[in-house]
């Protein structure tokens, strides 16, 4: 499968509430160490669902190249 051009990027002010992980249709996000959400770039397709529910508004959908 071809990787999408865009990907979710979690900002440093993530509160680790888990809202993003709950809605991710590809289970690409998890709360690591209870500190912050982290995105698996192999699974993320940049669908924006996480960005739309993030209560802290710290998730952006960015160019894949900019992150990796």
């Amino acid at each position: 499968m071809t990787a999408s051009l865009r990907i979710a990027h979690v900002g440093k002010e993530c509160v680790a509430c888990g809202c993003c992980a709950r809605v991710c249709p590809r289970a690409a996000i998890q709360i690591a160490w209870g500190i912050s959400a982290c995105v698996d770039p192999e699974l993320c397709v940049g669908c924006r669902k996480c960005a739309q529910v993030c209560p802290a508004a710290v998730i952006d959908i960015v160019e894949r190249e900019a992150v990796l």
Binding site: A32, G34, I35, S36, V39, P41
Partner: peptide, 29 residues
Amino acid sequence: TMTQGVCKLKNGKKARIHGRESQADCKLA
């Protein structure tokens, strides 16, 4: 906030060592 603070105290070092504090893949975690 308090539980995240506790997790930072407890896991912050591990997270920093592995570079998983805010981004990158989650496989190690």
